[in-house]
Structure formats: C-alpha cells, structure tokens
Design a protein around this nucleic acid. Structure first.
Length: 853
RNA sequence: GCCCGCGUGGUGGAAUGGUAGACACAGGGGACUUAAAAUCCCUAGGCUUAUGCCGUGCCGGUUCGAGUCCGGCCGCGGGUACCA
C-alpha cells in the first residue's frame, strides 16, 4: 500500500498540466471566455501566507471555470516599482533594479510549486521597460486629450534631508530619518483629471451589481458629491486686489449663525498678508508644520490667527465678521476659505470656544433639550429654525439647504453649486524607482511631450561612470550628470528631462488590460482587449477598496477615450471579491532613541501570552496587524509547502475562515489538513472489491449528489470554507459507507473532482488511481441530479413562545393544518398547554412551528 | 477626527429573521500495539444533573420568533489621496 507523498505527486502533475498547456490562454470562439484576476503582488522578496490565500482563491475559480467549459485567462505579474526597493538600496547598498528582479525570481520560484493554474507566458513586471514604455505612451495620449495637467500641490518636506517624504515616512510629524519637524511645502506637480469623471464614477457604481456594497459605499463617500452655495464676502478695507473672499458651504441654511471667516495658510490673501506682516508669516510657518495627511490635519490642534481684517455679512452689511487664518483649512478643498458656524459644527465650535467667538444657534431640536456643544443633527432630521431666512420653520436640513440656495440665488448672493470631495490625482513622485514622466522642459518651448518613437524613456542604471549612490537623500535622477540632458522634441535645442517619476498606482491602474496582450507594441491590442475584457472576477484585499479601484476605473475610461479599451470596458471589473487579510501580531521593542524596532516571529518565544527575545527581553505584542514587510510580521509559507506539500497549504488557507474575513495566522492546523488529505488518498488507494449493496449504494449516491450540490454552491459564492466543510462530511460518509466497490469508486472519483480546484495534485493522483479518463483538470464538472436531492420527510422543531421544546417528523409537503394538529398533539406541547388553548400557532412549512400561549 | 467593516465555545468558525455552536483544531476517554507513531471509535458551550436555567461584545427596541433587522455604546481592524 502506497502512502500519500506530496513531494512525489505534485511536480509530476505540474509537468503534465504544463505539457498539456491546460492553463495557456488563447482566444477561442467556441467557448465562453472567463477572465479571473487576483491583484498582483509587490515583489517584497518572499511570498507570504496572504499571497497563498489570495492566489488559491483565484485558482479555485479558474480551475472551476475550466471544468464548467470556459476559456479561462488567469495571468500573473508583479507591481514592481515603489519605495521599498529604494529603501533597501539605501539600507544595504545595491540597486533597486537588481533587488527587484532578484525578488521576482525568488517569488516565482516559491509560487510555482503551489501549482496555480496560471498562464505564466503572460507574466510581466511593471518595471520592465516594455511595460512602462507603454505607460509613457498612455501618459502622452492622456496629455493630448487634456486628461493631464500641471498645478501646485503640497508635499511633506523634510527641511534637514532637503527631500520630499511619503506619508509613511512621517512619524508623529517628524521625518523618519532626520527626526526634523516636517513642513507642508508646495511643488509643481502633474495631475490626472479624475475630477472630470466624478459624477460618472459615482453614478456608475450603481451598475456594479457584483461588487460588495461596502466598497461602493466607501467609493461614494470618497467621491463625496455635495450640493452647496458658493458666494463671496466683501472685505472691509481690503488689501489691494483682495476685495472679496470666495467661500463654499454645504450649510447655507446656517448663514445667520456665521461668526467668523477662516482661510487656509496657503490662501492668496494669507500669502499677501504674510509678505509684510512678520506675525502672519510666523503663524503661517507654524500652521504649515506637520504632515499632509487628512488624518494629521484633522487631529492636529486647531489654531487660528486673527488677521484683524473684517468681512461684511452678505445679508447685513453692518454685520462684520473677523477673518482668521486657520491651520485646518486646506487650499486643495473647495475655495480654501470657509465661514464658521460654531453652533452647528464640532470643529467650528471648538475654534470659537478657543478664540472667544460668538456661538449663534440657527435651529433647535423639535422636541427635547438643546444639547451641550455643537448641535449637528443628520440632514434628514427635522429641526425648528429660530434664525431662518428661507423655507419652513420646521424642516429637514436638506430642505433648508435647498431653500437657502434658492433664496440666495434670487437675492444675488452667490449660487448653488454641486461639488465633489474627490480631488485630481497627483501622480508626480520625486523618486528614482518609478516610471519616468515622458516630458522635456525647454527654455523656449516650455513643457514639451517626448516623441513616442523615443519611448521608452529608460531609467539610467548608473550615475554616469559610477553606480548610483542611494544613500544620499533626494532623487538620483535629479542629480544625474547626463540623464537629464536631451534635445527639445519641438525645437531641437538642448533641454532638460522631467526627473519626476509616476505614482506606482499608475502602474497598477491598467495592468489588467495589458494582460490581454502583454507583448503588444501598443498599450493594448484592441482585438484582444475586446475578447478578454472585462475581468469577470477580480479578487483582492479590502485595503484597495478606494484608491486602486477608483484609479483603475478612471484609467479604463481614459483609455477608452484614447482608443485603448472598448466602450464596454469602462467598468473593467464585472465582479469584485475582497478577501480578508491574513494578520499577524507585531513584536516590537524600542531602540535607544525611543524608535520602534520590529522582530521576526521566529525570534520571539511566547510564554503566558507574553513575548520574549532569546536574550530574555520582553517585547510588546501588537495583535492582529496587517502583514507588512516593514513591520517584520510576515509569515513565510515555504516551510509548510516543503513539509506537507502545496495541496495541504492550499486546503489549509481555504478551510475554516470565510474568505472575506480577516484571519489571524497561527501555525497550528496545517498538520490536520495534511492528515485529512492523507486519509482521502488512503480511501482511494485501499478501495476494496466489495460486492454491490443496493441500499447502501443508493444511499451513497444520494449523498454524492448532495455533496456535488453543496460544494458547487460554495465555490460559486466564495464560500470555500463551506465547501470544505461539506467535503469533510462527504469523505466521512464514504469512509463509513457499506456500499459496494463500484459505488464507492464513483463517489471517490466525484470527491476527487470536487476537491480538484482546491487540491489539484491529489485530485489528479486519485483520478488516475481510480481509472479516470485524461486529466481531472480538463474533466467536466459533475452535475447534481436534482431528483436525488429531494427528501421525503422533514424534521420540524416545535417552539413554545419562541423556545424549542420538541420536534416532529412530517412528510415534506404536508399542509399547514395537518402540521399544526401534529404539533399540538406533541407531548411537550400538551404538557405545557395543560388543557389551555394556544393563542396562536405559526407554521412555517418545512421549517418550524411556534406555539404562542 | 472622518468613512467602511468586524465582534458567536478553549481555538478557527456554521447558521435564506425559524432547532445557536455544522465542519474542523486543541482537549478528555477508549480500541489496536510489548511500547510508541499512525489509524479507528466515543465525548465535548456554561451552570448543573432537569421534562431546568443561562448563553452570539454591552444596553435598549421591532417581531410569534433576533447571532441575523433598528437605535445607542464599547473594543478591534482597514482606508484617510506619497506604503502597496
């Protein structure tokens, strides 16, 4: 008798699939196509258990769809540009390119033994010049269509290292390396005009029926459509050229509660005042301290500076309001100026309390007490207006806003405007390891697009004659001796290349389209795009719910405009599944400067819920955190694969936890998965030659069809854990069945088929042992016989006042009155009723009886 | 701060508004074995020994019936536009 030896089985079948080209995707008109895609990985160095979970889910879908007669595209690539490669070069020397490609080699080597049904011939990395050259071509097409432009925007500036920092590199308002207080500084940057599509990106969410509602909600809130009033305050004794301050408000109904006007430190008026008032300059400098994130700005202490200037209230020119410069108002939002209504806004309330400004309620609750602090009811709630100028006395916020806008428009005070929270997408990065922005700066011609025939504009590997030194802060492209030098594509005069590279979100915004024709010498090939798009099932982490998915939706539209994608691919992902993350505790200590040091799980010993290093130092345990290379809490699945095999790893990551839920990784359990697979293997290997047994055979057949039905349902609905629970059950049924050999052979072959998307190698082996024809990977999926699923009788629980007190076995389609009669005759019911009449009897056919008394 | 989720035995989790704890893991008991491994069988929410009570983060509500729906808390996670 042979034993289950994954190490022998798995390479054998991988070779067989390869030779039969089972997963090679070719256009074919005789079958429906199916494009399944998992979000491609960043080549961090090694795969982690989260990757295994993600790609196994995609593989289950891919293999299932092949079995159900689809022509499947299931590609893989790498999201290969980004900061970690530069950080590695900074920390350990070497070159980002070498680091990245070496990581990709390692990860491919680690992924191949998992037996994923991928078309590896389509693989690419976004740092391949063939890919990013086409991305540069897309950029030029977007530029031509007016979808790209330049403007100023704020970045995190480290004044000691004299460099731009990513948000991640700002810790508590200080630069991660220098420790210097970070400032917000303006820089001229490139932007994609995603705001042109705000309304469409919002309304089209309604068409995405197979996206999770939570993702659509998050995107809708992010886009943030609001109706409000834009109007201007006139300044008293205005400085030259600043006689009006333009503001936008979503609460014009609270205009009578206005008590101040706030402007951003970057507002033109603030800048004007800053020029000859040192106090203003000092305040603005302080207000610009700290990072650029919304979180940092929202959480920072609210600070204001009274400019001494006054504006006139639009309804009453005698009513003057003070003008403050405030650190929480951003130039990027709205007009960079607001009016404050402290009675009905938490932030304004805090500000007014701090600076002793008026707090004037304009409405109150219809019933009950006026609350302490700001009164901010939902806009759908009715309130009583006590300082009203438009609409009913009692109305909802929404009604009041509409009435206020109408009133203001009729009286020449501004106009109703629809605005979006969504800002244009700044794509410039002052970094080396990204896709160069293909434009040239010419003294006479200005900003000139590079010619397409000069693409790709490749990153230089060396700095002239010596290796690039990544230990120096700043962008190596900026200080490169020769790379910047070029001729102006327009006039031919000596000119300078743009040294900014693209945000890595650009790379991942169109890779799904590139996979349809990965070697084309244009960004896409229309025939291939038309055949393969859309992605039928996209699978990825919930952390990408907003940015990546929104940017990809924008890119699909922009590519359509430029003729790179068909109209039908404007929403590129037909169905989306967001799998949960695999989380793991972070083990942390502090260094001499109080900065965190992260330790690998294998270096930490756990005792009584506390963690210790080998030298006895206790570590702080931060539970359930997203796995991140920089936090050293990544679990490496390679050991599991080596010890138990790919099928065990695949089975294990799919069992137990529902796919959409986060799962805290623990090492226990792989052993159990392996035991189960060995048991299945044994059942097939030890199949005896027992004679047929009519009753047991029939019973096993029924169970088999139930298993087909349930497992298929699980796979169709991303309930892989439910499918696996059914497969455990079916395996137990077969093991205990007294059916004859032929019935068991059929059951085991079906079991192998149902398991084949999850444990494909073991399934092939069993299929072969039991005499299955060809490869199980190419065998048609079993179909459940509906007639076999029907049960004649059903067990109905009986509740008395909602509590279960007994049960009855009744024919499946017995009518309600009969069921009621039987239920009332039940011992437990008789006992409890004790001769009394029930008030009511509820019979839910096939489910439950509830006796109310 | 704001937006979006999640919270069920010792553990992972199951449950179209209808028997809470399926299926597993760890545990306990047993069989086989000289012994161990492997395998197989039984057991298993808590209180307690009943035809009982309690129990799905906490408090309240809707309902004949709530883990599921609604409101308010608490805790944890994701995102917050330069991490990917």
């Amino acid at each position: 008798m042979s034993r289950y030896q994954a190490a022998e089985i798995e390479p054998k079948w991988q070779k067989a699939w390869d030779e039969a080209k089972v997963f090679r995707a070719e256009r074919a008109e005789d079958k429906p196509k199916y494009y399944v895609l998992e979000m491609f990985p960043y080549p961090s160095g090694r795969i982690h258990i989260g990757h295994v979970r993600n790609y196994t889910m995609g593989d289950v879908i891919a293999r299932y769809k092949i079995a159900t007669g689809h022509n499947v595209l299931h590609p893989m690539g790498f999201d290969a540009f980004g900061m970690p490669a530069e950080n590695a070069a900074m920390a350990n020397g070497g070159h980002p390119k070498d680091w990245t490609y070496s990581n990709i080699d390692t990860m491919v080597e680690q992924m191949k033994p998992l037996g994923f049904g991928l078309d590896w011939s389509r693989m690419f990395a976004t740092c391949d010049p063939e890919y990013y050259g086409q991305q540069q071509a897309l950029f030029l097409d977007f530029l031509e269509k007016g979808l790209v432009y330049r403007k100023n925007a704020v970045v995190n500036w480290d004044p000691v290292d004299m460099t731009v920092l990513a948000n991640e590199q700002v810790e508590d308002g200080r630069g991660w390396r220098s420790g210097a207080l970070v400032e917000r500084r303006e820089l001229t940057q490139w932007f994609f005009k995603i705001s042109d599509f705000s309304d469409e990106l919002l309304s089209a969410l309604d068409t995405l029926d197979n996206w999770p509602a939570k993702v659509k909600t998050m995107q809708a809130n992010w886009i943030g459509k609001s109706r409000g009033l834009q109007f201007s305050f006139s300044l008293v004794d205005a400085p030259h050229g600043h006689d009006r301050v333009e503001v936008y408000t979503t609460r014009p109904d609270t205009l009578m509660g206005a008590s101040f006007v706030g402007i951003s430190p970057d507002h033109p008026l603030a800048k004007e005042l800053e020029r000859d008032n040192p106090d203003v300059a000092a305040f603005c400098e302080k207000a610009r301290q700290g990072g650029t994130t919304e979180e940092a700005i929202e959480k920072a202490e609210k600070m204001g500076f009274d400019t001494g200037l006054k504006v006139r209230h639009p309804f009453d020119t005698a009513w003057e309001l003070p003008v403050y410069i405030a650190n929480f108002i951003l130039m990027d939002y709205g007009t960079g100026a607001i009016f404050g209504c402290p009675a009905h806004d938490e932030r304004d309330h805090e500000f007014a309390t701090k600076y002793g400004l008026d707090i004037i309620p304009t409405f109150e609750p219809v019933e009950g007490e006026y609350p302490d602090g700001a009164f901010v009811p939902a806009k759908t709630e009715k309130v009583r207006y006590i300082k009203s100028f438009a609409g009913e006395e009692i109305q909802t916020g929404n009604e009041a806003v509409d009435a206020a806008v109408d009133f203001c428009e009729q009286n020449g005070v501004g106009q109703g405007v629809t605005k979006f929270r969504l800002r244009d997408w700044g794509l410039s990065r002052q970094r080396y390891w990204g896709c160069p922005i293909p434009v040239v700066h010419c003294e006479t011609c200005g900003v000139v697009p590079e010619k397409k025939e000069n693409l790709p504009i490749q990153l230089p590997y060396d700095e002239g004659d010596k290796p690039i030194d990544f230990s120096i802060p700043g962008n190596p492209l900026d200080r490169h001796p020769t790379w910047r030098d070029c001729d102006c594509p327009s006039c031919g005069a000596p000119a300078k290349r743009e040294t900014d590279t693209m945000d890595t979100f650009v790379d991942s915004s169109w890779y799904f389209a590139r996979f349809t024709a990965p070697r084309a010498d244009t960004p896409t090939n229309m025939a291939d795009a038309e055949y393969w798009m859309n992605v039928d099932q996209y699978i990825g982490g919930i952390e990408h719910a907003i940015l990546h998915l929104l940017y990809a939706r924008f890119f699909a539209r922009a590519m359509n405009i430029c003729g790179h994608l068909p109209e039908t691919a404007k929403e590129p992902f037909d169905a989306l599944f967001t799998q949960g993350m695999v989380t793991h505790a972070i083990f942390q200590t502090k260094d001499g400067n109080g900065r965190p040091v992260y330790h690998y799980p294998e270096d930490v010993e756990l005792r009584d819920g506390k963690g210790f290093l080998k030298d006895g130092t206790e570590v702080e345990i931060i539970p359930s955190a997203k796995m991140s290379k920089s936090k050293n809490n990544v679990v490496d699945p390679v050991q599991i694969i080596q010890q138990y095999g790919a099928d065990t790893a695949r089975w294990f990551v799919l069992s137990d936890s529902p796919p959409e839920r986060d799962v805290e990784w623990t090492a226990a359990g792989a052993e159990a998965a392996s035991k189960h697979l060995a048991r299945v293997y044994r059942l097939a290997a030890e199949l005896d030659d027992a004679p047929a047994n009519a009753e047991a055979d029939q019973q096993l057949l029924r169970e088999m069809h139930k298993a087909i039905h349930d497992v298929t349902g699980g796979v169709e609905s991303f309930g892989f854990n439910a499918s696996i629970a059914k497969l455990y059950g079916f395996t137990n049924t077969i093991a205990k069945s007294r059916a004859g050999a032929e019935a068991k052979r059929e059951a085991l072959k079906t079991l192998a088929q149902l398991m084949s998307p999850m444990t494909p190698h073991l399934a092939e082996e069993i299929w072969q042992t039991l005499g299955g024809e060809g490869l199980i990977a190419q065998a048609p999926w079993p179909v459940a016989d509906e007639a076999m699923l029907v049960e004649d009788t059903v067990t109905m629980p009986i509740q008395i006042n909602g509590k279960r007190r007994g049960e009855i076995e009744v024919p499946k389609d017995m009518d309600k009155a009969e069921v009621e009669k039987l239920a009332l005759a039940n011992d437990a019911v008789q006992r409890t009723l004790d001769g009394a009449q029930p008030k009511k009897v509820i019979v839910v056919p096939g489910r439950i009886v509830n006796v109310v008394m």
